[in-house]
């Protein structure tokens, strides 16, 4: 009898930091989350959202009678216009609200459905649950919005006309611009994802904090330099492949070098996720007093 208890104790201490187990658990969580959230009718809205910039570019390039020719003729300014479309439409609207929807629902949705306790009743550290859910949101949003970014770029380059577009892509700066845009989209998902996961986890009504973040990000260009750096869009803006002015009212801040802004984004994200992991250990589930 006593040996059995002894064995159990050993088993328990050994499994404390079992990376193999945690990775298996994260995979299982991702499988559940992806099928639940990104398969089926519930996900339709998010696919529509991701399609908006592609549809817009399509209208501009294919349907607008002069659109395609304009882009081809004024390639330099077309790239700049695309830069604005990318930053304000794709990044600050589509990726922002897409991530808000995806990441806030990871926990809030299950609290509303009263099904979060099934995870809490597994032999699963709650920090690992946060990691698994975050990664599934990141995978889905990263994939979806990268595709949306690529789709928009494909239409832009199509309008440039053959063979100029191929030259631009493979002999000019083109391919690096594509990577830059995709990279910014992915970093956007990373950062916004962390913020919205946190909001969805700890605010009863996440809409208001989400709108506050939205306002903060949009008004970022007006903020004094110190505050400016406390935002996701600031870092992403400085990464843009085609330089853009922020307009006449903007405060001027020396652009942050990518060698600072990329690690800052990643560190910020890690900090938010770790903080969420610490807070979730204290979380209680009792679905109200029914």
């Amino acid at each position: 009898m006593s040996t059995m208890i002894g064995q159990r104790t050993v088993e328990r201490t050994v499994s404390r930091t079992d990376w193999g187990l945690w990775l298996r658990q994260i995979r299982a969580i991702m499988r559940i989350e992806i099928t639940k959230n990104f398969w089926g009718r519930r996900a339709l809205l998010i696919y529509l959202l991701a399609a908006v910039p592609v549809i817009l570019m399509f209208l501009l390039v294919m349907v607008h009678p002069e659109g395609g020719k304009d882009i081809s003729r004024n390639w330099a300014s077309a790239q700049e216009v695309f830069g604005y479309i990318y930053e304000y439409l794709i990044l600050q609207t589509i990726v922002f609200f897409g991530c808000a929807w995806i990441f806030m629902n990871l926990f809030r949705g299950e609290l509303v459905d009263k099904s979060l306790h099934y995870y809490f009743l597994c032999p699963l550290r709650r920090e690992v649950l946060v990691a698994g859910k975050y990664l599934s949101g990141l995978l889905a949003s990263g994939l979806l919005f990268s595709l949306s970014t690529i789709g928009s770029l494909v239409l832009l380059y199509y309008a440039r006309g053959y063979p100029a577009n191929v030259n631009f892509l493979f002999d000019g700066p083109g391919i690096w611009q594509v990577f830059d845009y995709i990279g910014i989209t992915l970093l956007g998902c990373l950062g916004y994802g962390a913020v919205f996961l946190f909001i969805g986890l700890f605010f009863r009504n996440p809409i208001i904090p989400a709108l506050l973040v939205y306002g903060w990000e949009w008004l970022n260009f007006l903020l004094p330099p110190v505050l400016k750096k406390i935002s996701i869009v600031h870092y992403l803006h400085t990464l843009a492949p085609v330089p853009m002015s922020e307009g006449p009212f903007a405060t001027v801040v020396a652009p942050t070098s990518p060698f600072i802004s990329i690690p800052s984004m990643i560190l910020f994200t890690a900090a938010v996720i770790v903080f969420a992991g610490i807070r979730i250990r204290k979380m209680e589930i009792s679905y109200g007093g029914e």
Partner: peptide, 27 residues
Amino acid sequence: GYCGQFDSFPKGMTGYEFVNAFLGVHG
């Protein structure tokens, strides 16, 4: 093991998937 009072489930699963999914989370 805890079988709670709430008659609620993760969305969209079959009975098999429901039981199986969380065994996956067990590892």
